[in-house]
Amino acid sequence: MHIANRTFIISGGASGLGLATVADLHSRGGYIAILDTNTDNGEKAVAELGAERVRFYECDITSTESIQAALDGIAAWIKETNAHIGALIPAAGVGFPGKLIDRKNQPIPLANLDFVLNINLRGVLDLIRLTLPLMTVSPPTAPDGERGVIVMVSSSAAFDGQPGQAAYAASKGAIRSLTLVLARDLAQYGIRAMSIAPSFFESSMTAAMSDKVRQSLMRVFEFPKRPGYGKDFAGMVRTCVENEMLNGECVRLDGATRMPSKM
């Protein structure tokens, strides 16, 4: 799939790994639709990259109505540009650590679990299902008849989740499991599905970690001896977009790091 003159829909695209992906795909001629709740960051990205090939749509990924409104705007934009969808990258995600039972023998509030699952899993599924009608009508590209790719964001927690990550690991494990099913479901349309499982990357989520947690994680790095950067993630997204043989797989992006069971 060529990047130039295609539209890329990126949720969570106003910050972190999503924003790095926005910049990378835009630099290669892509049209970018940023979906995010952070209006200030979204408008800043448009101002910096230019409104000619970037649009911001305020969108709450937990709301079907909000997603559909954003997609209606994107559909109208595609009619203007004739830049059909190249990829959907649902990159919006949150972490809310907490063990299922605390030291006082109290179960975790269900609202805490719902917060993570509604954004990381339900919101991803909702965004995908509502975007597919736009993707399936895109003209197929030669020589294989490809129409696009969905690149989801899993996590190393899907493989070796840490204490307190029940909801997060469950949501990211579900994304990992969804990848092959989605590839099989969409094969008839020429739409591929991939997921990327980053480990410890510099992001707004990891910035909230305590120094103790950060130092514990850095001790288990193999190579390179550093956290992942946005450019590393964006490069992997680009590879998933451009290489048509990548389909139905979750790629670990972790420098051989395996998360420890204890800090």
Rank of each mutant, 00 (worst) to 15 (best):
I101T: 08
T136E: 13
H2L: 14
G148K: 05
S138P: 04
T21L: 12
G123M: 06
G173Y: 15
S177N: 02
L71E: 00
Q162C: 01
R214V: 06
G42C: 05
R176P: 01
N82H: 12
F8S: 10
T136A: 07
R103F: 15
L88C: 12
L246I: 07
R219L: 14
M205T: 13
A87M: 00
G164T: 11
G148C: 08
E48W: 08
R252H: 07
V153P: 10
Q165K: 14
F56N: 02
R28V: 10
L182V: 03
M135F: 12
E249D: 09
Y229K: 15
D24L: 15
E249G: 15
G50Q: 08
S195N: 06
I74V: 04
S154R: 12
N118I: 02
G255K: 09
A14I: 03
P143D: 00
R129Y: 05
A158C: 15
T39L: 13
A187I: 01
M152N: 08
V116N: 03
S138R: 11
V151R: 14
Y168N: 05
K225V: 06
G228H: 09
P90V: 07
I10H: 09
V251Y: 12
L121W: 13
F200M: 13
L100I: 09
P163Q: 04
N105T: 08
V94C: 03
T257S: 13
A69N: 08
P139K: 03
P163R: 03
S15E: 09
V46P: 07
I108E: 13
I78K: 00
Q215N: 11
V241F: 06
K79M: 12
L71Q: 02
Q215M: 10
S210Y: 14
R192K: 01
S138A: 08
N112T: 12
N5T: 10
